[in-house]
Simulated scan of single mutants.
Amino acid sequence: MEDMGGASVQVQVRRGLGQLAPGSPGQAPPLLAAEGGSGPTKPRQLMPSRPRAPGGSSLTSSPTGVRRPRRTPGHGIAVKSRGEGPRVSLHAGQHLLDEDTFTENFRSDNRPPRTYLCYEVERPDRGSGVPLDQDKGILRNKKPFLLFCAQSAQGPEVPCHAESRLLEQIQSWDLDPKLHYSVTCFLSWSPCTDCAQDMTQFLKESSHVSLSLFASRLYTRGHYDQGLRTLKRAGASMAIMTSREFEHCWTAFVHHKGNPFQPWPGLAMESRKFSEKLQHILRGA
């Protein structure tokens, strides 16, 4: 998805292909971070199709039915970047976002020119097909210039948006269709229209995977509202990040050096504003 907007989603999926919607950059090669702009337009990248509660955390049901993570400690395993990947620092053998990068991109009253996607996979057991080092990660959209270079060298099927990259990664896993997998994502921007459509297709072809999306803000360009409604009809569960989700991400995906998460002024108001708008959009689904 492109960079602008935020909404969370839970999607039921079988192996397939897909991508998110309104404003988050797509995905590139499995677990490779990159950067992209948040301009009014974005290159659309489609990818071939193929897919535990968050490690160290559990999910609770909110009044709206969206499963939100409880505040329990954890750690994130991010992805190495190629070229100009996301600003992630290697700490204790793992890639984590630094404090400034997290705040700059996830603070809901900011409008960063990129999308970050932090994900956690709840798998049935260790032998379920999800690589042990890929049950958590951080992805970011790929810069248009880097995307052009990759396309020139590898062909046109290079994912650009963070959501696309996540779907590509899931499709690379050897998942057992008889088991159920739950993927929870925390996005700095909600999916753009194209990402939502691709993700919808992915869900239609995959019934053994559920996906929950929590977005910091809504991406509101193009037919983003149609994309979100389509995604919901495909089985996705979407919600806006609240203080609980921000704190969970801080604990699991940020090298916080022991510093507690500090809510910024207006966080609750921004979350409420985006949440009301999202609920209004989804009523027509």
Rank of each mutant, 00 (worst) to 15 (best):
P124S: 05
E122G: 15
R111D: 05
E168Y: 08
E122H: 10
G155N: 03
N110W: 01
L139T: 02
S128W: 06
Q151F: 09
R114C: 04
F106W: 02
S108M: 10
E157T: 12
L96G: 07
R126I: 14
P113H: 07
S108E: 03
L146M: 10
S128E: 01
F145Q: 03
V158L: 05
S128I: 10
P159T: 08
D135C: 13
D133N: 13
C160V: 07
H91Y: 08
F106D: 01
H161R: 09
K143C: 04
N141L: 00
F148S: 15
V158F: 02
E163V: 14
S128F: 08
L167I: 10
G155L: 03
A153T: 10
G155Y: 03
T115I: 11
D135T: 15
V130A: 07
T101N: 01
G129Q: 03
Q154N: 11
R126F: 12
N105Q: 08
K142N: 00
Q151R: 15
S108C: 11
S152C: 12
H95C: 11
G137K: 04
L97Y: 06
R114L: 05
R114Q: 04
A162M: 01
P156R: 07
L139F: 02
H95A: 12
T101C: 05
D98S: 08
P113W: 02
E120Y: 12
R140A: 15
N141G: 00
C149W: 02
G129T: 06
P159F: 07
A162H: 00
F102E: 00
V121A: 07
G127Y: 03
N105W: 05
C118Q: 04
H91E: 06
Q151S: 14
R126C: 13
L117T: 01
T103P: 05
G155S: 04
P159M: 09
C160N: 03
A153N: 05
A92N: 08
P112Q: 04
R107F: 11
C149I: 11
G93C: 10
P159N: 08
E163N: 10
R165K: 10
D125C: 13
C118D: 02
E163T: 14
D98E: 01
S128P: 03
E104S: 14
K143L: 03
P112T: 08
S108P: 06
R107Q: 10
P156C: 08
P156K: 07
G137N: 02
E104M: 11
L117F: 00
A153P: 03
Q94H: 14
S152K: 11
P156H: 04
H161G: 15
V130Q: 02
R114F: 03
V158E: 00
P156I: 10
